[in-house]
Nucleic acid binder design. Structure first.
Length: 151
DNA sequence: GCCAACGTTGGC
DNA sequence: GCCAACGTTGGC
């Protein structure tokens, strides 16, 4: 069982949207490293839902992987913002997973708080210039987040 | 296979 | 809206 963090711009898709449309497919990932991580996801893995590029940046909720990686069909659709002519149905380049809503965080766990946690001193999230939208989270980091939820 | 130009991400 | 830090592209 593994832990992951997935970023989403809440203006486009927020934790509220996931709650209202659960499970949802996580389409539109067009970065190889992020894709590779998604391909490692297993059913039942825990996901931290992160709101990026917005007023309240940070962890907004919890989700679970309910379907493992399969071709991202938005790459095949010329009308989609995520269309990629180089991804063909016979040989898809991009993949997505399905995630189901678990719950909101009690309150938003801001990026500042995350940065203040020793567990997150070394992470894809807080690393300078980090732009990865899908990343693994360690057991220690996961527990640190749960600890915040208890306090 | 190098690397300059370009596009994107995402915090501020 | 700015821009630093990246990732990707494409000419050579």
């Amino acid at each position: 069982m593994a832990y992951w963090l997935m970023k989403s711009e809440p203006d486009a898709f927020s934790i509220d949207d996931l709650q209202a449309n659960s499970p949802a497919h996580w389409d539109g990932v067009r970065n190889y490293q992020a894709r590779n991580f998604m391909q490692q996801m297993k059913i039942g893995d825990d996901v931290l839902f992160y709101h990026s590029s917005c007023k309240k940046i940070g962890l907004a909720g919890f989700a679970k992987v309910v379907k493992e990686a399969y071709p991202d069909h938005t790459a095949f659709d010329p009308n989609s913002d995520y269309f990629d002519a180089k991804s063909q149905p016979e040989q898809p380049r991009w993949f997505m997973v399905d995630v189901a809503y678990s719950r909101h965080t009690k309150q938003l766990i801001s990026l500042d708080i995350l940065k203040s946690l020793p567990a997150f001193e070394q992470s894809y999230l807080t690393k300078k210039g980090a732009r990865l939208s899908v990343m693994p989270i360690t057991e220690v980091q996961w527990q640190a987040v749960l600890e915040l939820e208890r306090s």
